[in-house]
Simulated assay, not measured.
Amino acid sequence: MKIVAKPIKTMVVFEYEGKTPIPYKFKFQRDDGSEQLIKIDKRIDSYRQKIAGIETVIYECQSVIDGIEKRYKLKYILSDCKWQLYAI
């Protein structure tokens, strides 16, 4: 996987007693300037990790993007409440 760290707009859900958001779908800006909407087909794993001293939650996911099944990672930065397409 290649690290891209692009900001994304994310729609999330919360479980009944969960405090951490669970991504459902997201939009990101392609290199040509257009936006693409991706529905998350499968969440493979999620874990907390400190990156450069910043507390994050990494979600490993899988979706069909442009007709090809791809795995990627989404990063949620807890202190800023921001999302990134971290690696694809």
Rank of each mutant, 00 (worst) to 15 (best):
A52K: 12
K19H: 07
K19I: 14
V57P: 03
Q49N: 12
C61F: 05
A87Y: 02
Q62L: 09
C61Q: 07
I51R: 10
Q36K: 15
Q29I: 09
K25M: 02
Q84P: 05
C81S: 14
I58F: 02
I8Q: 05
I44L: 09
M11I: 15
S79N: 11
S46Q: 10
K42H: 05
T56Q: 08
R71E: 01
P23W: 00
I3R: 14
I68G: 07
I58D: 02
R30Q: 08
C81H: 08
A5P: 03
Y72T: 15
V57F: 02
A5V: 13
Y16I: 15
K82H: 03
P23Q: 05
I58S: 12
I68N: 12
K6W: 00
Q49F: 03
W83G: 10
K2G: 15
Q84S: 13
I58H: 08
D80L: 14
W83H: 06
L85D: 01
S34V: 12
W83Q: 07
Y47Q: 13
Y24E: 08
I40N: 01
K42F: 00
A5R: 15
L85K: 07
Q36F: 06
K82V: 07
S63H: 05
K70A: 05
K25C: 05
G53M: 05
A5H: 10
G53H: 06
F14L: 07
I40W: 00
P21W: 00
S79C: 08
Q62S: 14
I8F: 02
V4F: 01
K70S: 06
K27A: 02
L74T: 10
D45A: 14
K42V: 11
K9G: 06
Q49M: 11
Q49C: 10
G18K: 05
L74G: 08
P7Q: 09
Y72D: 03
Y76H: 10
Q36Y: 06
E35N: 13
F14Y: 09
V57Q: 10
K73E: 00
D32N: 14
D31V: 15
A87M: 13
Q36G: 10
I88F: 06
I44H: 06
V13F: 00
K70F: 00
Y86L: 12
I77H: 04
A87I: 08
C61K: 11
E60T: 15
I65P: 05
M1G: 14
Y16C: 11
S63N: 07
R71Y: 00
G67H: 08
K6P: 02
D66M: 13
Q36D: 04
K70H: 03
V13A: 09
Y16T: 15
L37F: 02
I88H: 07
F14P: 03
K25R: 11
C81P: 00
E35M: 15
Y76G: 13
T20L: 05
E55D: 12
Y24S: 15
I88Q: 08
Q29M: 13
I58W: 02
V13K: 04
L37A: 13
R30G: 06
K82T: 13
A52Q: 11
M1S: 15
E69G: 14
I58R: 13
Y59N: 09
Q29N: 11
G33M: 06
F26N: 04
R71V: 09
K73C: 06
E55Y: 07
K25P: 00
G18N: 08
Y47R: 14
